[in-house]
Computed example of a mutant assay.
Amino acid sequence: MHHPLFSRRSAGLSALALILAAGTVAPAHAETAISADRCEANKAAGKITFLTSFAYAATLGILDVVAAKERGLFDDLCLDVAIEPGSTNSQLVSANTAQIAGVGSASDVMVAIDNGADIVGVATYGNVGAIELLTMADSGIEELKDFEGKTVGYKGAIAPQFSAMMLDNGVDMGKINWVSVGYDPTILPNGNVQGLGAYKSNEPKVLEAKGNSVKEWDPDAYGVHSTFNAMIANKQWAAKNPTAIEDFLRAEFKAFDWINESDANLDEALSYAEKLSTSGYDVKQSKVRWQTELALMQGSLPEGMMPGQQSDAQWQPEADMLVRFNLVKAAPDIETAQDNTYIDAIYADGALVWPAP
């Protein structure tokens, strides 16, 4: 997928020509990047802390934000943005300790709101699930019922998508030994677990790169549909600073388009994330991760919608799933759980609007 992009280099050369002609010094933020009034409004929003959903992983909604920061796109829009690895993102954004953050899916947004969080979903990247279960290809597990009696690792909490997939196919969840595990996928080929919760873009690629043959159990293939990589904002802060949240998303998706323009751009973006990482960074595997997630996003983008745009219909399957498994106290009100005015404002006529109006 390719969208028309505003050429920052061309804009810079045009601005330079004007400066030379006028014999004056360039302003800190060129008028072609943002209007003076909008610049002041964005400055008034103060420091914006963005929390990543998982360190500096090469995932949609992290790498593009990092690239926007490194390439000065936030500066171009008079935004003061700090990027930090996240943890309890919904709680921190609700408390306005951070203003914007990434979370795993629409489910995370709706569950947090059900628990009283003052947050709102402002963008959704993927409209297909990004998680699945893995088994070794020679494990003898040939159907979902075969998971009974086996030990299966999960991260954080058992995903409702896994529960739905199992229960819809007559599996007794009580007969599966679910255990909380870390992020080392080699526990699967090493035999510590017989099944492993995984991200489609990560663990299966890592294990296959090490010569392991795995079988993937995708909830989507069993009719369990969900989303991946949602962006949240503090609801009150966003309402008070609409141009700041719009332009954060504008810079983010400008960088997203830039990354996807060429392999060289992706490599450069990965170098930014590698520089920020303090625990080692597998550039080769990270590149595969981005490309895999990009394909998932592109393949699930509803007709007529642009990257990041969301709707009630996209979140409804997950809302229904949360109600079905009693993971929320009340049926989610999707209309208030997401605010689409910000993401919709950055697009016009099928293209990202850059510079800002």
Rank of each mutant, 00 (worst) to 15 (best):
A22V: 04
F162K: 00
P204C: 13
V283G: 09
L327I: 03
L249M: 11
N212T: 09
G140S: 06
Q236G: 12
V214T: 14
E261A: 10
N340Q: 13
Q285S: 15
M231Y: 09
T135C: 00
K210L: 10
G174P: 05
D118K: 15
A233H: 07
V152H: 05
P27W: 11
A255Y: 02
G350P: 00
G61M: 04
E31D: 10
Y56D: 07
N177G: 05
L296H: 04
A26Y: 10
V171G: 07
Q194P: 10
L322K: 04
D333R: 06
S14Q: 06
V181Y: 02
N229H: 12
R324E: 15
F253N: 04
E70N: 06
V283H: 13
R250P: 13
C39P: 12
A331V: 03
M165T: 02
G86A: 05
D76V: 07
E148N: 11
I48Q: 06
Q91D: 11
N169T: 06
D349T: 04
K215N: 08
F228T: 02
A244E: 00
P85F: 08
E148F: 04
A41N: 07
P85L: 13
K145Q: 13
A95V: 00
M306N: 13
G129F: 04
G46A: 05
D247K: 11
Y183K: 03
A157S: 11
V128L: 06
